[in-house]
Structures are given as C-alpha cells and as structure tokens.
Amino acid sequence: MEIIETVTRSPLFGVFLTLLAYIIGTYINKKTGKVYLNNLLIAYIIVIGTLLIFKIPVENYNNGANIITSCLGPVTAVLAISIYNQRKKVKENLLPIIIGTLAGSITSIGSVIVLAKLFGLDWPTTASVIPKSVTTAIALAISDSLGGYIAITAICVVITGCSGNILSPYLIKLFRFTDPVAEGLAIGTASHALGTSKAIELGEIQGAFSSIAITFAGLITVVITLLMVI
C-alpha cells in the first residue's frame, strides 16, 4: 500500500492517469461513433473510479493534474486562431452575436433565479449557480461578488459545460438549428469553453462563433450581475 502512496504522489501519476483516461474515452467514442459515449464523461468515470477504488487521495492526483489544468489558459488563448480564421463571417454577423449572447445570458441568469426559487434554494446557493454558463475564472469572481460559495460555482460550471458538451449535438437536432453561426453562439453562450470543444468538432464556423460567445457572454454576465449588486 505504501508503494501506491509513493507512486501516486508523483506528478507523473496525475498526468498519466488523465492522459490514459482521455485516450480510452476518445477511443471508445470514435470506435462506437455514439454521441452519448462522450469522451469527457468516460474520462471522468475512469479517473474518479480509479481514485475511489484504489483509495488514492485526490490531492495526490492533483500533483500532476494541476499541470494539465494550468494549460487551460493557453488552450483558451489559442481559440483566437479559430476566430481569426472566420473574421470575415464574424464581421458580417456582429449584430446577431451581440443580440444572441445578450438574450442568452439574460435567460441563463433569469432561469437560474426562477428555478432556484422553485426548488427552495437559499440566496448564497442561488448566487453560486447564477454564473454557471460562463468560463470558470469569470464565474468564480461573479459568485464571490454576489455572496455565493465558490466551491459550488466551480462544480456548477463543470456540470453545465459537461452537459453542453454532451447534449449540444442533440439540442441542435431538437431545435432544428441549421445555421452554424446560431449553433456556435448557442453552444458557447450556454456552456462556455467546455461546450466549445464540442463546437470545434462540429465545424470551423461553430468553433469560431462558440469562442466568440465565451467572451461576449462572459462580459455581459459580469455587467448584469454588477447591476444586480448595485
């Protein structure tokens, strides 16, 4: 047992387990071609399952996993490429971008408040869920300014992003969206960068507009919640 403790404490363990889970998840997803066998979901199950079965403390996993998380900054930054490649289409669609992300962000905040009331949640918990559709860094700052619990916000951001990543291909069909611009903006506004990784798989235009939506929805949500505090 001591060997397990020593090995898992090495930063290489967290990196290895994450890579392995990703490779297996992606392999199963590609091999079966089933949307519901989402690679992210499979990877979560593999990592969490491994940690629980072998009683490995999540702190040990994080020694290496933190290295991968710190790459999230660069990964978000290079989304600029997909926006730049679609710059002509972006320029043509400036108004739909603004109106779409504004309407979406208002819906996101409003629906959380209404649903939280229906479910009888207290204000700090409600405040923690409000910024769930924006990228983690913005969401945590908003939750804090509204008096929410940062830990709950972090989880809600992941739940929302993950469900956007899994469900967006279905939602596009359900709502009969055929315009890649609308698809991309909907994915990015509803489920930030995690959904965007699916948008990139769907197509270059979807990826670009989903990336733009992250920025717009983030900024708009900051402004709306600022007004709520005042």
């Binding site: 739909p96 979406g104 629906s111 649903l115 479910f119 918990t125 739940i159 929302t160 909907a186 509803a190």
Partner: peptide, 22 residues
Amino acid sequence: KLVLICLISMVLTFFVTGFSVI
C-alpha cells in the same frame, strides 16, 4: 437540485441564444 437547475437553464439558454440569432 443543482444538477437539474444547471441542466434546464443550459437548455433554455441554448435555445434562446440560437433562436434570437436566427
């Protein structure tokens, strides 16, 4: 409750955004 709220709100946001863009 949190999972349900996130899920429902995400779907609503998705629909309203896409619909207003179209």
